[in-house]
Simulated scan of single mutants.
Amino acid sequence: MFVAIPRFPLLDSALDIATLSLILALLLFSFLSFFFILHLRLKSQTAPYLHGFSSLWTVKLILVSSIALWSLAELLQAPFLRRRYLYPSPLSLTQQAGLCRLHSILSLGLFQPAFLVTLLFLVNVSIKQQNPRSVWIVTFVLGTCLPLVSLQSFTHFSSPIYPHLPDYFFQSSVHFRDGFGNETVLCTNPLLGTIVFGAFTILYCLCFLLSCWKVISLVINKGLRARIYGLAIGVLIPLPVQVVLLVMSAFSEPGKPAFGGIEFGIFVAPLLCAAVSESILVFRPIADALSAVGDCCLRDPLPTVKETETTTFAGGP
């Protein structure tokens, strides 16, 4: 079934360019984070006074990797990018619809929950004296995300089971013909998948709020408190906004300017959450570590661990 709606080329191009630019910026940011995490980890092998700062490097790598994978998955949603850049030849309508379904399952069922769960895990362990093993971290993330992936997959393939429900409960794409006769596919968000993700978001926000409250109750430094407040705002505001926009998109008419704006907002909300998380939990602790080491080296060429230990949020014990 095709939907014939007049297009707005300038608006579509602007949203495509903005989406691509933000994805590339986040990928670059994630690459730099990945590099600095490994750099600090390798440096700590020969500098014992850096062990405390790089103790959570595995968790941070999982966080950065999940964010990078989510960014790449977002490329599947943009029609212009799918037609022009991802493949040497244009995809068929069926293939584009399959990519939309794959994007919805991976984005809301795996990659975004993965970096959110890792973020929660990182906040919790940052105030503990002992660091968890890498196997436990991976098990915790996968154990949380696999049920979500299964539920998201079920919502996309369960339309024959519930034939009495409207199409927008299951529909992840719509065939589209613009005013010039060009046929393409627009990705949509099935309402059942949104309900699953919304339930996860409510539970997650409650857990994240409690975790931040615990950290704030233990932190005395005003600078660290400001970081925690910034992290809480950067997570607890965009996520509910994303869920609201997902619900609105299910009832919006694809192809209209409002639909494009809603879809762009759905993309920007988790992007802000990811950028804030990387800035506060990866970049700032590493900068603090290097700054502390530099200060210690100015006083003593061979500083001890006690001389360089500071209370750095998400930077280790």
Rank of each mutant, 00 (worst) to 15 (best):
V215Y: 11
E309G: 01
L22T: 11
V196C: 07
H39R: 15
G315H: 12
Q130N: 13
F8C: 02
L290P: 00
G52C: 10
L61V: 06
L146A: 09
V64R: 08
T201G: 02
E309K: 15
I228K: 05
A258R: 10
S279M: 12
P132T: 07
F34I: 02
L24M: 14
V244N: 02
D16T: 13
L22I: 13
L75E: 01
G261T: 04
L191F: 12
A292Y: 00
T139Y: 03
F80G: 09
F31Q: 03
S13F: 14
K43E: 14
Q129S: 13
S30F: 05
P257V: 02
G98S: 11
N189L: 11
F259W: 15
S30E: 03
E309D: 10
G193T: 04
H156G: 02
F154N: 01
M1R: 08
S89W: 12
S252D: 13
L91R: 05
L81K: 01
L142E: 00
C205I: 14
G179W: 02
V125T: 13
C296D: 06
A314Y: 06
P88S: 11
L192F: 15
L27N: 10
D167F: 04
C296Q: 08
F8H: 12
F8E: 10
R227M: 12
R177P: 01
L245R: 05
